[in-house]
Design a protein around this nucleic acid. Structure first.
Length: 585
DNA sequence: GCCGTTTTCGGCCCGACTGTTTTCAGTCG
Protein backbone atom coordinates (compact mmCIF):
# COMPACT_ATOMS: atom_id res chain seq x y z
CA UNK A 1 0.00 0.00 0.00
CA UNK A 2 1.15 3.52 -0.76
CA UNK A 3 0.97 6.33 1.78
CA UNK A 4 -2.02 8.31 0.55
CA UNK A 5 -3.99 10.19 3.15
CA UNK A 6 -7.31 11.78 2.22
CA UNK A 7 -5.72 15.08 1.23
CA UNK A 8 -3.27 13.30 -1.07
CA UNK A 9 -6.08 11.31 -2.68
CA UNK A 10 -8.08 14.50 -3.14
CA UNK A 11 -5.08 16.14 -4.84
CA UNK A 12 -4.73 13.32 -7.36
CA UNK A 13 -8.44 13.46 -8.16
CA UNK A 14 -8.23 17.23 -8.60
CA UNK A 15 -5.27 16.76 -10.94
CA UNK A 16 -7.36 14.25 -12.88
CA UNK A 17 -10.22 16.74 -13.02
CA UNK A 18 -7.98 19.55 -14.27
CA UNK A 19 -6.40 17.39 -16.94
CA UNK A 20 -9.82 16.20 -18.08
CA UNK A 21 -10.93 19.80 -18.37
CA UNK A 22 -7.85 20.67 -20.39
CA UNK A 23 -8.51 17.64 -22.56
CA UNK A 24 -11.97 19.05 -23.25
CA UNK A 25 -13.83 16.21 -21.57
CA UNK A 26 -17.51 16.41 -20.76
CA UNK A 27 -18.11 19.09 -18.14
CA UNK A 28 -20.00 16.83 -15.78
CA UNK A 29 -17.34 14.19 -16.00
CA UNK A 30 -14.51 16.40 -14.80
CA UNK A 31 -16.78 18.10 -12.28
CA UNK A 32 -17.57 14.73 -10.73
CA UNK A 33 -13.87 14.22 -9.97
CA UNK A 34 -13.64 17.67 -8.44
CA UNK A 35 -16.77 17.16 -6.39
CA UNK A 36 -15.53 13.84 -5.03
CA UNK A 37 -12.15 15.41 -4.22
CA UNK A 38 -13.83 18.14 -2.22
CA UNK A 39 -15.84 15.60 -0.27
CA UNK A 40 -12.79 13.43 0.41
CA UNK A 41 -10.74 16.39 1.63
CA UNK A 42 -13.29 16.98 4.38
CA UNK A 43 -14.09 13.31 5.03
CA UNK A 44 -13.49 12.37 8.70
CA UNK A 45 -12.46 8.75 8.11
CA UNK A 46 -9.27 7.60 6.33
CA UNK A 47 -10.09 6.27 2.87
CA UNK A 48 -7.29 3.69 3.03
CA UNK A 49 -9.23 1.99 5.82
CA UNK A 50 -12.55 2.30 4.01
CA UNK A 51 -10.96 0.81 0.88
CA UNK A 52 -9.88 -2.30 2.79
CA UNK A 53 -13.47 -2.74 3.95
CA UNK A 54 -14.84 -2.06 0.46
CA UNK A 55 -16.89 0.90 1.74
CA UNK A 56 -15.64 3.72 -0.52
CA UNK A 57 -18.96 4.11 -2.32
CA UNK A 58 -20.51 5.18 0.99
CA UNK A 59 -18.89 8.56 0.32
CA UNK A 60 -21.32 10.84 -1.52
CA UNK A 61 -19.95 11.53 -5.00
CA UNK A 62 -17.89 8.34 -5.12
CA UNK A 63 -19.39 5.64 -7.31
CA UNK A 64 -18.09 2.29 -8.47
CA UNK A 65 -15.75 3.83 -11.05
CA UNK A 66 -14.12 6.34 -8.70
CA UNK A 67 -13.86 3.76 -5.93
CA UNK A 68 -11.91 1.57 -8.36
CA UNK A 69 -9.57 4.44 -9.28
CA UNK A 70 -8.99 5.24 -5.59
CA UNK A 71 -8.17 1.59 -4.87
CA UNK A 72 -5.77 1.56 -7.79
CA UNK A 73 -4.17 4.73 -6.44
CA UNK A 74 -3.77 3.20 -2.99
CA UNK A 75 -2.22 -0.01 -4.35
CA UNK A 76 -0.10 1.29 -7.21
CA UNK A 77 0.51 4.94 -6.38
CA UNK A 78 -1.46 6.15 -9.39
CA UNK A 79 -4.34 5.05 -11.61
CA UNK A 80 -4.31 4.18 -15.28
CA UNK A 81 -6.62 6.90 -16.55
CA UNK A 82 -4.58 9.57 -14.79
CA UNK A 83 -1.38 8.17 -16.27
CA UNK A 84 -2.91 8.18 -19.75
CA UNK A 85 -3.85 11.85 -19.43
CA UNK A 86 -0.46 12.77 -17.96
CA UNK A 87 1.16 11.17 -21.02
CA UNK A 88 -0.96 13.35 -23.26
CA UNK A 89 -0.79 16.62 -21.30
CA UNK A 90 2.23 17.51 -19.14
CA UNK A 91 1.26 18.23 -15.53
CA UNK A 92 2.73 21.73 -15.99
CA UNK A 93 -0.42 22.70 -17.89
CA UNK A 94 -2.27 22.53 -14.60
CA UNK A 95 0.12 25.19 -13.24
CA UNK A 96 -0.82 27.41 -16.19
CA UNK A 97 -4.50 27.04 -15.30
CA UNK A 98 -3.77 28.48 -11.85
CA UNK A 99 -2.62 31.78 -13.37
CA UNK A 100 -5.39 34.39 -13.11
CA UNK A 101 -6.97 35.00 -16.53
CA UNK A 102 -5.73 31.66 -17.81
CA UNK A 103 -8.20 28.81 -17.68
CA UNK A 104 -8.30 25.36 -19.25
CA UNK A 105 -9.01 26.67 -22.76
CA UNK A 106 -6.11 29.09 -22.89
CA UNK A 107 -3.74 26.66 -21.16
CA UNK A 108 -4.60 24.14 -23.86
CA UNK A 109 -4.08 26.67 -26.66
CA UNK A 110 -0.72 27.73 -25.26
CA UNK A 111 0.31 24.08 -25.27
CA UNK A 112 -1.08 23.21 -28.71
CA UNK A 113 0.15 26.31 -30.54
CA UNK A 114 3.35 27.20 -28.69
CA UNK A 115 4.27 24.06 -26.76
CA UNK A 116 4.14 25.92 -23.45
CA UNK A 117 4.14 23.59 -20.43
CA UNK A 118 5.44 25.74 -17.58
CA UNK A 119 5.06 29.14 -15.96
CA UNK A 120 8.59 30.05 -17.11
CA UNK A 121 7.76 29.21 -20.72
CA UNK A 122 4.54 31.25 -20.46
CA UNK A 123 6.50 34.19 -19.13
CA UNK A 124 8.99 33.95 -22.02
CA UNK A 125 6.21 33.76 -24.60
CA UNK A 126 4.62 36.89 -23.16
CA UNK A 127 7.89 38.85 -23.15
CA UNK A 128 8.89 37.75 -26.65
CA UNK A 129 5.47 38.54 -28.07
CA UNK A 130 5.10 34.95 -29.27
CA UNK A 131 1.89 34.66 -27.32
CA UNK A 132 0.04 36.92 -29.79
CA UNK A 133 0.19 34.04 -32.26
CA UNK A 134 -2.54 32.35 -30.24
CA UNK A 135 -6.01 33.33 -31.43
CA UNK A 136 -8.02 35.78 -29.36
CA UNK A 137 -4.96 37.31 -27.71
CA UNK A 138 -5.38 41.08 -27.98
CA UNK A 139 -3.10 43.55 -26.21
CA UNK A 140 -5.38 43.82 -23.21
CA UNK A 141 -5.75 40.09 -22.73
CA UNK A 142 -1.98 39.64 -22.92
CA UNK A 143 -1.46 42.46 -20.40
CA UNK A 144 -4.01 40.83 -18.08
CA UNK A 145 -2.29 37.49 -18.30
CA UNK A 146 1.08 39.13 -17.65
CA UNK A 147 -0.32 40.77 -14.51
CA UNK A 148 -1.99 37.52 -13.52
CA UNK A 149 1.33 35.74 -13.82
CA UNK A 150 3.09 38.36 -11.68
CA UNK A 151 0.42 38.05 -9.00
CA UNK A 152 0.56 34.29 -9.14
CA UNK A 153 4.34 34.14 -8.80
CA UNK A 154 4.40 36.78 -6.06
CA UNK A 155 1.68 35.20 -3.98
CA UNK A 156 1.78 31.51 -4.60
CA UNK A 157 1.09 31.11 -0.92
CA UNK A 158 -2.29 32.21 0.23
CA UNK A 159 -2.50 34.76 3.01
CA UNK A 160 -3.04 33.59 6.55
CA UNK A 161 -6.44 34.31 8.04
CA UNK A 162 -4.70 36.40 10.71
CA UNK A 163 -3.32 38.71 8.01
CA UNK A 164 -6.47 38.96 5.93
CA UNK A 165 -9.07 39.34 8.67
CA UNK A 166 -7.76 42.59 10.21
CA UNK A 167 -7.38 44.08 6.70
CA UNK A 168 -10.96 43.13 5.85
CA UNK A 169 -12.20 44.57 9.12
CA UNK A 170 -10.43 47.86 8.40
CA UNK A 171 -11.98 48.06 4.93
CA UNK A 172 -15.45 47.30 6.31
CA UNK A 173 -15.01 50.02 8.92
CA UNK A 174 -13.94 52.47 6.20
CA UNK A 175 -16.91 51.61 3.97
CA UNK A 176 -19.38 51.92 6.83
CA UNK A 177 -18.35 55.57 7.24
CA UNK A 178 -19.74 56.31 3.76
CA UNK A 179 -23.27 57.80 3.66
CA UNK A 180 -24.40 55.53 0.82
CA UNK A 181 -23.40 52.34 2.67
CA UNK A 182 -26.17 50.84 4.80
CA UNK A 183 -24.16 47.78 5.78
CA UNK A 184 -20.89 46.05 4.93
CA UNK A 185 -19.93 42.48 5.87
CA UNK A 186 -17.03 40.20 4.95
CA UNK A 187 -18.16 37.05 3.10
CA UNK A 188 -16.32 34.22 1.37
CA UNK A 189 -13.56 32.11 2.90
CA UNK A 190 -12.99 34.90 5.42
CA UNK A 191 -16.48 34.54 6.88
CA UNK A 192 -15.99 30.79 6.90
CA UNK A 193 -12.77 31.48 8.84
CA UNK A 194 -10.72 29.27 6.57
CA UNK A 195 -7.10 29.05 7.74
CA UNK A 196 -5.77 30.74 4.61
CA UNK A 197 -7.49 33.26 2.38
CA UNK A 198 -7.13 33.71 -1.37
CA UNK A 199 -8.98 37.00 -1.58
CA UNK A 200 -11.32 39.15 0.48
CA UNK A 201 -15.04 39.25 -0.40
CA UNK A 202 -17.12 42.04 1.05
CA UNK A 203 -20.87 42.51 0.62
CA UNK A 204 -22.18 46.05 0.94
CA UNK A 205 -25.82 47.02 1.17
CA UNK A 206 -26.84 50.26 -0.52
CA UNK A 207 -29.45 51.98 -2.69
CA UNK A 208 -26.72 53.85 -4.56
CA UNK A 209 -24.35 51.35 -6.11
CA UNK A 210 -22.27 53.77 -8.16
CA UNK A 211 -21.44 55.79 -5.05
CA UNK A 212 -20.25 52.62 -3.30
CA UNK A 213 -18.18 51.49 -6.30
CA UNK A 214 -16.56 54.91 -6.34
CA UNK A 215 -15.86 54.66 -2.61
CA UNK A 216 -14.18 51.29 -3.09
CA UNK A 217 -11.94 52.61 -5.86
CA UNK A 218 -10.89 55.42 -3.50
CA UNK A 219 -10.26 53.24 -0.42
CA UNK A 220 -6.93 53.95 1.31
CA UNK A 221 -6.08 50.26 0.92
CA UNK A 222 -6.60 50.34 -2.86
CA UNK A 223 -3.38 50.08 -4.82
CA UNK A 224 -4.87 49.28 -8.23
CA UNK A 225 -8.39 48.85 -9.58
CA UNK A 226 -8.66 45.50 -11.37
CA UNK A 227 -12.27 45.78 -12.51
CA UNK A 228 -15.22 48.00 -11.70
CA UNK A 229 -18.81 47.61 -12.85
CA UNK A 230 -22.30 48.43 -11.57
CA UNK A 231 -22.38 45.79 -8.86
CA UNK A 232 -18.80 44.67 -8.32
CA UNK A 233 -15.43 46.29 -7.95
CA UNK A 234 -12.18 44.36 -7.55
CA UNK A 235 -9.10 46.11 -6.24
CA UNK A 236 -5.60 45.01 -5.37
CA UNK A 237 -4.19 46.14 -2.02
CA UNK A 238 -0.57 47.01 -1.33
CA UNK A 239 -0.16 43.68 0.42
CA UNK A 240 -1.07 41.97 -2.85
CA UNK A 241 -4.44 40.73 -1.66
CA UNK A 242 -7.41 41.09 -3.98
CA UNK A 243 -10.55 42.61 -2.50
CA UNK A 244 -13.91 42.08 -4.23
CA UNK A 245 -16.68 44.39 -3.08
CA UNK A 246 -20.23 43.80 -4.22
CA UNK A 247 -23.24 46.08 -3.80
CA UNK A 248 -26.73 44.75 -3.26
CA UNK A 249 -30.12 46.27 -2.43
CA UNK A 250 -31.36 45.88 1.15
CA UNK A 251 -33.96 43.24 0.24
CA UNK A 252 -31.22 41.17 -1.44
CA UNK A 253 -28.72 41.34 1.44
CA UNK A 254 -29.37 37.88 2.86
CA UNK A 255 -29.30 36.15 -0.51
CA UNK A 256 -26.08 37.89 -1.45
CA UNK A 257 -24.44 37.07 1.87
CA UNK A 258 -25.48 33.44 1.56
CA UNK A 259 -24.31 33.24 -2.02
CA UNK A 260 -20.93 34.84 -1.51
CA UNK A 261 -20.16 33.12 1.78
CA UNK A 262 -20.10 29.73 0.08
CA UNK A 263 -18.45 27.38 0.08
CA UNK A 264 -19.05 26.56 -3.54
CA UNK A 265 -19.84 22.95 -2.61
CA UNK A 266 -22.31 24.08 0.04
CA UNK A 267 -24.07 26.42 -2.38
CA UNK A 268 -24.33 23.83 -5.13
CA UNK A 269 -26.07 21.52 -2.68
CA UNK A 270 -28.36 24.30 -1.41
CA UNK A 271 -29.38 25.11 -4.99
CA UNK A 272 -30.08 21.48 -5.68
CA UNK A 273 -32.42 21.46 -2.70
CA UNK A 274 -34.08 24.63 -3.97
CA UNK A 275 -34.61 23.00 -7.32
CA UNK A 276 -36.31 20.01 -5.74
CA UNK A 277 -38.73 22.42 -4.09
CA UNK A 278 -39.44 24.09 -7.45
CA UNK A 279 -37.37 27.10 -6.43
CA UNK A 280 -34.21 28.83 -7.53
CA UNK A 281 -31.57 30.56 -5.41
CA UNK A 282 -29.23 33.19 -6.75
CA UNK A 283 -27.47 36.19 -5.25
CA UNK A 284 -30.68 38.27 -5.51
CA UNK A 285 -33.11 36.05 -3.69
CA UNK A 286 -35.08 32.84 -3.60
CA UNK A 287 -37.64 32.49 -6.40
CA UNK A 288 -40.39 30.08 -7.24
CA UNK A 289 -39.87 28.73 -10.74
CA UNK A 290 -42.90 29.68 -12.84
CA UNK A 291 -44.38 28.23 -16.02
CA UNK A 292 -41.83 26.93 -18.52
CA UNK A 293 -38.95 27.80 -16.26
CA UNK A 294 -39.80 31.50 -16.07
CA UNK A 295 -38.63 33.26 -12.93
CA UNK A 296 -41.67 33.38 -10.69
CA UNK A 297 -42.56 34.97 -7.41
CA UNK A 298 -39.75 36.05 -5.10
CA UNK A 299 -40.13 34.27 -1.79
CA UNK A 300 -37.18 35.51 0.22
CA UNK A 301 -33.70 36.95 0.35
CA UNK A 302 -33.61 39.89 2.76
CA UNK A 303 -31.82 37.87 5.44
CA UNK A 304 -29.81 34.67 5.43
CA UNK A 305 -32.24 33.13 7.92
CA UNK A 306 -35.03 33.74 5.42
CA UNK A 307 -33.10 32.13 2.56
CA UNK A 308 -32.55 28.94 4.52
CA UNK A 309 -35.97 28.81 6.17
CA UNK A 310 -37.98 29.13 2.93
CA UNK A 311 -35.94 26.20 1.61
CA UNK A 312 -37.11 24.11 4.56
CA UNK A 313 -34.04 24.34 6.80
CA UNK A 314 -34.82 24.00 10.49
CA UNK A 315 -31.54 25.73 11.39
CA UNK A 316 -29.10 28.22 9.91
CA UNK A 317 -25.79 26.44 9.23
CA UNK A 318 -22.97 28.52 10.77
CA UNK A 319 -20.62 29.86 8.05
CA UNK A 320 -17.60 27.99 9.47
CA UNK A 321 -19.07 24.58 8.65
CA UNK A 322 -20.46 25.29 5.19
CA UNK A 323 -18.41 22.70 3.27
CA UNK A 324 -21.23 20.32 2.27
CA UNK A 325 -19.81 17.82 4.73
CA UNK A 326 -23.04 16.89 6.48
CA UNK A 327 -24.07 20.33 7.76
CA UNK A 328 -26.89 20.62 5.23
CA UNK A 329 -28.55 17.38 6.24
CA UNK A 330 -28.14 18.27 9.93
CA UNK A 331 -29.49 21.80 9.47
CA UNK A 332 -32.50 20.56 7.50
CA UNK A 333 -33.33 18.13 10.30
CA UNK A 334 -32.55 20.55 13.10
CA UNK A 335 -29.72 18.32 14.37
CA UNK A 336 -26.89 20.86 14.29
CA UNK A 337 -25.10 21.09 17.65
CA UNK A 338 -24.53 24.45 19.28
CA UNK A 339 -20.91 25.08 18.34
CA UNK A 340 -18.28 26.46 20.69
CA UNK A 341 -18.23 30.26 20.94
CA UNK A 342 -15.54 32.68 22.03
CA UNK A 343 -17.73 33.68 24.97
CA UNK A 344 -17.62 30.05 26.24
CA UNK A 345 -13.86 30.28 26.75
CA UNK A 346 -12.83 30.53 30.41
CA UNK A 347 -9.07 30.24 30.03
CA UNK A 348 -6.05 29.52 27.85
CA UNK A 349 -4.08 26.25 28.04
CA UNK A 350 -0.76 27.03 26.36
CA UNK A 351 1.28 30.09 27.44
CA UNK A 352 4.99 30.86 27.63
CA UNK A 353 6.77 33.49 29.71
CA UNK A 354 10.10 35.30 29.92
CA UNK A 355 11.35 32.32 31.94
CA UNK A 356 11.99 30.62 28.59
CA UNK A 357 11.62 32.03 25.07
CA UNK A 358 8.67 34.40 25.40
CA UNK A 359 8.45 38.17 25.82
CA UNK A 360 5.84 38.66 28.55
CA UNK A 361 5.95 37.89 32.25
CA UNK A 362 3.55 35.70 34.14
CA UNK A 363 1.94 38.80 35.58
CA UNK A 364 1.46 40.37 32.15
CA UNK A 365 -0.14 37.16 30.95
CA UNK A 366 -2.48 37.21 33.92
CA UNK A 367 -3.43 40.84 33.22
CA UNK A 368 -4.31 39.90 29.63
CA UNK A 369 -6.31 36.90 30.84
CA UNK A 370 -8.24 39.24 33.13
CA UNK A 371 -8.84 41.65 30.24
CA UNK A 372 -10.22 38.75 28.19
CA UNK A 373 -12.60 37.89 31.04
CA UNK A 374 -10.96 34.54 31.82
CA UNK A 375 -11.41 32.66 35.09
CA UNK A 376 -8.03 30.96 34.87
CA UNK A 377 -4.86 30.69 32.83
CA UNK A 378 -1.84 28.42 32.77
CA UNK A 379 1.89 28.72 32.58
CA UNK A 380 3.39 26.12 30.27
CA UNK A 381 6.98 27.07 29.64
CA UNK A 382 9.34 24.76 27.76
CA UNK A 383 10.73 21.81 29.73
CA UNK A 384 14.37 21.14 30.54
CA UNK A 385 15.37 19.09 27.49
CA UNK A 386 14.67 21.93 25.05
CA UNK A 387 18.04 23.50 25.74
CA UNK A 388 17.99 26.04 22.94
CA UNK A 389 15.25 28.04 24.68
CA UNK A 390 16.64 27.61 28.20
CA UNK A 391 14.14 24.91 29.15
CA UNK A 392 13.04 24.99 32.79
CA UNK A 393 15.35 23.22 35.27
CA UNK A 394 13.87 21.97 38.52
CA UNK A 395 15.48 24.87 40.36
CA UNK A 396 13.86 27.44 38.06
CA UNK A 397 10.56 25.56 38.23
CA UNK A 398 10.60 25.96 42.00
CA UNK A 399 11.09 29.70 41.56
CA UNK A 400 8.21 29.88 39.07
CA UNK A 401 5.91 27.89 41.36
CA UNK A 402 6.68 30.25 44.24
CA UNK A 403 5.71 33.15 41.97
CA UNK A 404 2.49 31.39 40.93
CA UNK A 405 1.59 30.66 44.57
CA UNK A 406 2.20 34.29 45.50
CA UNK A 407 0.01 35.52 42.63
CA UNK A 408 -2.76 33.07 43.50
CA UNK A 409 -2.91 34.12 47.17
CA UNK A 410 -5.37 36.97 47.77
CA UNK A 411 -5.89 37.20 44.00
CA UNK A 412 -9.29 38.91 44.41
CA UNK A 413 -10.99 39.05 40.98
CA UNK A 414 -7.83 38.03 39.11
CA UNK A 415 -7.79 34.73 37.19
CA UNK A 416 -6.33 31.66 38.90
CA UNK A 417 -3.02 30.34 37.54
CA UNK A 418 -2.51 26.61 36.96
CA UNK A 419 1.02 25.17 37.00
CA UNK A 420 1.77 23.46 33.71
CA UNK A 421 4.66 22.65 31.42
CA UNK A 422 5.28 21.88 27.75
CA UNK A 423 7.23 18.63 27.83
CA UNK A 424 9.38 17.39 24.95
CA UNK A 425 8.59 13.98 23.56
CA UNK A 426 11.95 12.26 23.11
CA UNK A 427 13.03 9.94 20.31
CA UNK A 428 11.81 6.96 22.37
CA UNK A 429 8.53 8.60 23.42
CA UNK A 430 9.69 9.46 26.94
CA UNK A 431 9.46 12.98 28.37
CA UNK A 432 11.51 15.33 30.57
CA UNK A 433 11.87 15.03 34.40
CA UNK A 434 11.34 12.29 36.98
CA UNK A 435 7.82 11.16 37.91
CA UNK A 436 7.97 13.07 41.23
CA UNK A 437 8.56 16.32 39.35
CA UNK A 438 5.82 15.50 36.81
CA UNK A 439 3.42 14.86 39.69
CA UNK A 440 4.05 18.38 41.01
CA UNK A 441 2.44 20.07 38.01
CA UNK A 442 -1.32 20.67 37.82
CA UNK A 443 -1.12 19.25 34.29
CA UNK A 444 1.34 18.58 31.45
CA UNK A 445 1.33 19.18 27.70
CA UNK A 446 3.71 17.00 25.69
CA UNK A 447 4.83 18.02 22.20
CA UNK A 448 7.17 16.89 19.46
CA UNK A 449 10.00 19.38 19.03
CA UNK A 450 12.45 17.16 17.17
CA UNK A 451 12.59 14.58 14.44
CA UNK A 452 10.73 16.59 11.79
CA UNK A 453 12.53 14.53 9.18
CA UNK A 454 11.24 11.22 10.57
CA UNK A 455 8.57 9.31 8.75
CA UNK A 456 4.98 9.32 9.97
CA UNK A 457 5.20 5.86 11.52
CA UNK A 458 8.10 6.83 13.78
CA UNK A 459 6.41 10.03 14.93
CA UNK A 460 3.15 8.14 15.52
CA UNK A 461 4.95 5.61 17.71
CA UNK A 462 6.47 8.41 19.79
CA UNK A 463 3.05 10.00 20.34
CA UNK A 464 1.44 6.67 21.25
CA UNK A 465 4.18 6.06 23.81
CA UNK A 466 3.87 9.55 25.30
CA UNK A 467 0.10 9.19 25.67
CA UNK A 468 0.68 6.14 27.87
CA UNK A 469 2.41 8.38 30.39
CA UNK A 470 -0.01 8.98 33.31
CA UNK A 471 1.19 12.58 33.64
CA UNK A 472 0.75 13.58 29.99
CA UNK A 473 -2.66 15.25 29.80
CA UNK A 474 -2.51 17.02 26.43
CA UNK A 475 -0.59 16.42 23.18
CA UNK A 476 0.56 19.84 21.94
CA UNK A 477 0.37 20.90 18.25
CA UNK A 478 0.05 17.23 17.24
CA UNK A 479 0.88 17.43 13.53
CA UNK A 480 3.66 19.99 13.94
CA UNK A 481 2.66 21.81 10.78
CA UNK A 482 3.44 25.46 10.21
CA UNK A 483 1.21 26.73 7.44
CA UNK A 484 3.24 27.66 4.39
CA UNK A 485 6.52 26.65 6.07
CA UNK A 486 6.46 23.12 7.40
CA UNK A 487 4.31 20.24 6.18
CA UNK A 488 2.41 18.31 8.85
CA UNK A 489 3.98 15.04 10.01
CA UNK A 490 2.28 12.14 8.23
CA UNK A 491 0.78 10.81 11.46
CA UNK A 492 -1.56 7.86 11.58
CA UNK A 493 -4.14 10.20 13.02
CA UNK A 494 -6.72 7.47 13.57
CA UNK A 495 -4.25 5.45 15.66
CA UNK A 496 -3.33 8.56 17.64
CA UNK A 497 -6.96 9.39 18.36
CA UNK A 498 -7.82 5.83 19.32
CA UNK A 499 -4.95 5.81 21.80
CA UNK A 500 -5.99 9.25 23.10
CA UNK A 501 -9.49 7.94 23.78
CA UNK A 502 -8.11 4.85 25.54
CA UNK A 503 -5.72 6.79 27.77
CA UNK A 504 -7.89 9.84 28.42
CA UNK A 505 -5.33 12.10 26.75
CA UNK A 506 -6.62 15.37 25.30
CA UNK A 507 -5.54 16.82 21.97
CA UNK A 508 -4.47 20.41 21.68
CA UNK A 509 -5.95 22.77 19.18
CA UNK A 510 -3.02 25.14 18.92
CA UNK A 511 -4.58 28.51 18.08
CA UNK A 512 -1.40 30.17 16.88
CA UNK A 513 -2.58 31.37 13.45
CA UNK A 514 0.12 29.66 11.39
CA UNK A 515 -0.39 26.37 13.21
CA UNK A 516 -4.13 25.79 13.80
CA UNK A 517 -3.18 22.26 14.72
CA UNK A 518 -5.19 19.99 14.99
CA UNK A 519 -7.04 21.23 11.96
CA UNK A 520 -10.76 21.12 11.25
CA UNK A 521 -11.06 17.64 9.73
CA UNK A 522 -8.90 16.08 12.44
CA UNK A 523 -10.99 17.78 15.12
CA UNK A 524 -14.08 16.17 13.67
CA UNK A 525 -12.35 12.79 13.87
CA UNK A 526 -11.32 13.52 17.45
CA UNK A 527 -14.92 14.28 18.35
CA UNK A 528 -16.03 11.01 16.78
CA UNK A 529 -13.48 9.19 18.94
CA UNK A 530 -14.70 11.01 22.06
CA UNK A 531 -11.34 12.77 22.48
CA UNK A 532 -11.53 16.11 24.28
CA UNK A 533 -9.93 19.27 22.95
CA UNK A 534 -7.81 21.84 24.81
CA UNK A 535 -7.29 25.13 22.99
CA UNK A 536 -4.01 26.91 23.62
CA UNK A 537 -2.75 30.06 21.94
CA UNK A 538 0.92 29.14 22.46
CA UNK A 539 1.34 32.86 23.25
CA UNK A 540 4.90 34.12 23.32
CA UNK A 541 3.58 37.61 24.12
CA UNK A 542 0.52 38.44 26.22
CA UNK A 543 -1.12 39.97 23.13
CA UNK A 544 -0.95 36.60 21.39
CA UNK A 545 -3.64 35.41 23.78
CA UNK A 546 -6.05 37.22 21.48
CA UNK A 547 -5.38 34.49 18.90
CA UNK A 548 -7.98 32.49 20.79
CA UNK A 549 -10.51 33.73 18.19
CA UNK A 550 -8.68 31.71 15.52
CA UNK A 551 -8.67 28.67 17.75
CA UNK A 552 -12.38 28.93 18.43
CA UNK A 553 -13.07 29.45 14.71
CA UNK A 554 -11.10 26.31 13.87
CA UNK A 555 -12.89 24.40 16.62
CA UNK A 556 -16.22 25.47 15.12
CA UNK A 557 -15.05 24.29 11.69
CA UNK A 558 -14.43 20.93 13.39
CA UNK A 559 -17.95 20.88 14.92
CA UNK A 560 -16.53 21.17 18.46
CA UNK A 561 -19.02 22.12 21.17
CA UNK A 562 -18.48 23.54 24.65
CA UNK A 563 -18.92 20.02 26.07
CA UNK A 564 -15.95 18.79 24.00
CA UNK A 565 -13.66 21.62 25.05
CA UNK A 566 -11.52 21.87 28.18
CA UNK A 567 -11.43 25.67 28.01
CA UNK A 568 -15.21 25.91 28.31
CA UNK A 569 -15.25 24.13 31.70
CA UNK A 570 -15.21 25.69 35.16
CA UNK A 571 -11.99 25.16 37.12
CA UNK A 572 -13.24 22.18 39.15
CA UNK A 573 -14.22 20.32 35.97
CA UNK A 574 -10.91 21.26 34.35
CA UNK A 575 -9.06 19.49 37.19
CA UNK A 576 -11.28 16.43 36.87
CA UNK A 577 -10.35 16.08 33.17
CA UNK A 578 -6.66 15.66 34.01
CA UNK A 579 -5.40 12.08 34.35
CA UNK A 580 -3.79 12.71 37.73
CA UNK A 581 -7.23 13.33 39.29
CA UNK A 582 -7.80 9.59 38.87
CA UNK A 583 -4.39 8.45 40.20
CA UNK A 584 -4.47 7.14 43.77
CA UNK A 585 -2.11 9.30 45.76
C1' DG B 1 -18.82 10.10 -13.50
C1' DC B 2 -22.74 10.24 -10.19
C1' DC B 3 -27.41 9.66 -8.89
C1' DG B 4 -32.84 8.74 -8.02
C1' DT B 5 -39.87 11.35 -3.04
C1' DT B 6 -40.49 13.31 -10.83
C1' DT B 7 -35.89 9.63 -13.49
C1' DT B 8 -31.75 3.14 -13.81
C1' DC B 9 -31.64 7.50 -18.34
C1' DG B 10 -31.09 11.99 -18.60
C1' DG B 11 -30.21 15.22 -16.14
C1' DC B 12 -26.34 17.65 -13.47
C1' DC B 13 -26.11 25.71 -10.29
C1' DC B 14 -25.84 30.45 -11.86
C1' DG B 15 -24.56 35.13 -13.25
C1' DA B 16 -21.08 39.21 -13.96
C1' DC B 17 -17.30 41.13 -16.27
C1' DT B 18 -13.89 41.57 -19.92
C1' DG B 19 -12.09 41.62 -24.37
C1' DT B 20 -12.58 40.52 -28.89
C1' DT B 21 -13.52 36.50 -32.85
C1' DT B 22 -18.80 42.25 -32.72
C1' DT B 23 -22.54 38.25 -31.04
C1' DC B 24 -19.98 35.39 -27.86
C1' DA B 25 -16.09 32.80 -25.53
C1' DG B 26 -13.30 32.61 -21.57
C1' DT B 27 -12.65 33.30 -16.86
C1' DC B 28 -14.03 33.87 -12.25
C1' DG B 29 -16.37 33.09 -8.04
Amino acid sequence: MYEFDNTAIARELELMSDLLEIAGADRFRFLSYRKAAGMIRAWPEQLSKMAEEDRLTEIPGVGVKLAGSICELLHHGTFSELEALKAEFPAGLVDLMRVPNVGPKRARQFFDKLGITSLDALSEAIESGEIARVGGMGDKTIANIRRGLETHLGHLDRMLLMDALPLAERIVEELLKHDAVIDAVPAGSLRRMQETIGDIDIITVSEDSSAVMEAVRLLPATERVLASGDTKTSVLTASGLQVDVRVVKPDQAGAALQYFTGSKEHNVHVREIAKKHGMKVNEYGVFRIGEEGAEGERVGGATEEEVYSVLGFAQLPPPEIRHDAGEIEAALAGDLPRLLELSDIRGDFHLHTTSTDAHSTLEQNRAMAAALGYEYLVVTDHAENLHMVRGMTVTRLNEQWAEVDALNVDRGEAPYILKGIELNIGRDGTVDYDPEVLASFDFCIASLHSGWGDDGAKATTRLLEAMGNPYVDIIGHPSGRIIGKREPIALDIEAVLERAAETGTMMELNAYPDRLDLKDTHLRSAKRHGVRIAIGTDAHRAEHMRYMRYGVATARRGWITADDCLNAQPLETVRSWFKRSKLSS
